[in-house]
Design a protein around this nucleic acid. Structure first.
Lengths: 329, 329
DNA sequence: CGTAGCACTCAAGAATAAATAGTGCTAGAG
DNA sequence: CTCTAGCACTATTTATTCTTGAGTGCTACG
């Protein structure tokens, strides 16, 4: 499709533009390609014809088009080795044994955000693969209890429940016992159903205030299902990028970051490291989203980096790979 | 200090400016004060001399100074009655019995943020007044456990702990039993101390892997102490305000909102509803922070609203009062 | 095929001008 | 003593023009 020299030219343009955020002129590349600016202009013109480059106006230098970034990522870019500095910072995390695994992910994404100035997002997913391991109730006062659910993956969800009338501690105990007997081992997603059809009929018979108790537990489980754990850092660094030198653009981005539904929809299904440039992602046409699924002991989630389209693709990919590698152990 | 008419004039200027966000001209107030613009200019000039008004440039209309807002809030403003619409939206929250109290606060602050377009913040405080009610351990796998702490106020904190070697379930059980015996009833803030001086010496004797277990529990409790619960919504609405029509100002604000230490420092000590205008607050000279402490069943925290200095002070105060009133019940 | 040279284009910045919305001050009327 | 009409003055805003500089596109020639 494009020849050797054109490919080299595209590479130079993409990488220069990533560094400088300014349109690249033909003249500035003469040295590197050992030819005159006129020659480069001819090649640039060709690359523009095939849609890999763009101009911001008729007489400006060139910038990569979305297709240009895509071509660069797919065919030109080589994984970059990590700088000593980057490794150093990340290692402090991985060598800290007192952190639990899910904290390690969050911490390393925070560091990556700091290293790159892109926004990092960790979407933990509580419900999908978790099974109920234990249900427990701790009394707080006469009519207040706290219900705790622990899953086999180590997630804990809890909720206070208040009952209008005083309630026999004994009745609660019984209910908990029953739930433990019937529900333990059930995937979180199927709990509601099981509660409705298996638990409800039974406690109806045994327990006086069955309605109140049932509702209380129902709510606790619901909370579990709805709760997607979102962690996000680095918004402010990212909007400091010159492509967002516009009040309304910044407002748009900030407002998207604030909308949990939009953020949740960043969830990734594929297990590779995937790159969605500009209109390829659903978040915003002016950004690139790089994301991947992680899975630790069956506990799934998504990590993502969001930055301008002129992202340091090679570096980011290497960083994410590094994390994935280290999580495995 | 200032006479009747001047006070009325200041009131009109503040309120007009809050509505329109533009400097107020003398002419625009003729009707309301039944006098000519020249007269008003004289009075304005006086109010400027005493520091209650400002001009944006020599020939512009007036805007309130910080001192002007302060005077308005302290001496002129009257509490505004809530509009039916506002009440309606808030009532859906307070009449929803299935919500626990701390959720009610968060939800109502979210609604207030939406009603006013200011940023709302709820700073829950887990540690200060909580006492340990129960400590529990649930085994997940051979060398992984989950430790759960429940306080008397109904807070739950948990952490996974992995031990390098296999560990007798029995040893863990013993440790938990011991901790429960020694620690229950202790305020969270004093737990570390007690762990160090009362628990450690004892388990040293009884338990083989005392070090690992001790550290695991120590970490769980530490997590509790460090964790301030921050909830924040409405950043994007607030930066849509015309006073933040500036890229760098927006970046500054967003970055402050992202900094947890800065946000935590918003914590309020006083129990009234307090207003910090511009330089009176530590957050940012261009905003006003209105905050108050809440206390439900001894469970303390801060709720705050952050908006431009031209805040609808009367409305916000009434809204916050409404919440405080309703929380009491 | 590569390149030198030149005409052309557009953005960005500076300077100017006109329109507008204000104020401050003075002098006179009530 | 207070109010107000009138006018000079000032700063912002917007549009207009001009200039400069950094680029390109094209052509003709080695």
């Amino acid at each position: 499709m494009i020849n050797e020299r054109q490919s080299e030219l595209l590479k130079l343009i993409v990488e220069d533009y990533i560094r400088t955020a300014r349109p690249i002129s033909s003249k500035s590349l003469c040295d590197k390609l050992n030819c005159s600016s006129a020659t480069i202009r001819n090649e640039m013109s060709f690359l523009e014809d095939v849609g890999l480059l763009e101009k911001t106006h008729t007489s400006s230098g060139r910038i990569p088009s979305e297709k240009g970034y895509r071509y660069y990522v797919d065919n030109i870019m080589k994984p970059k080795e990590l700088s000593g500095d980057d490794i150093l910072k990340l290692q402090t995390i991985f060598h800290n044994n007192s952190l639990m695994l899910s904290d390690v992910i969050v911490k390393s994404m925070e560091i990556i955000s700091e290293l790159t100035n892109y926004t990092s997002i960790v979407l933990g997913n509580n419900s999908d693969t978790n099974k109920v391991n234990k249900v427990e109730v701790v009394p707080l006062s006469d009519n207040k209890f706290i219900a705790i659910i622990i899953t086999d993956k180590g997630h804990v969800e809890h909720r206070q429940m208040s009952l209008n009338e005083h309630m026999e501690l004994d009745e609660i105990r019984k209910t908990v016992e029953l739930i433990n007997k019937l529900i333990v081992g059930t995937p979180i997603t199927e709990v509601s159903e099981k509660l409705e059809y298996e638990v409800k009929p039974v406690i109806k018979e045994y327990i006086k205030q069955h309605d109140a108790i049932y509702n209380a537990f129902y709510n606790v489980f619901q909370g579990f299902v709805n709760d997607t754990n979102i962690r996000m850092v680095g918004t402010s660094h990212m909007i400091a990028s010159p492509e967002f030198n516009d009040v309304d653009k910044i407002r748009e981005i900030v407002s998207k970051f604030e909308d949990k539904d939009i953020v949740k929809s960043i969830k990734e299904e594929d297990s590779g490291i995937n790159i969605y440039i500009g209109s390829e992602n659903d978040f915003d046409d002016d950004v690139t989203v790089i994301k991947t699924k992680y899975n630790i002991d069956g506990e799934e989630g998504t990590i993502a980096l969001i930055g301008p389209k002129r992202m340091e693709y090679d570096r980011v990919i290497t960083l994410l790979n590094y994390i994935k590698e280290n999580i495995k152990r």
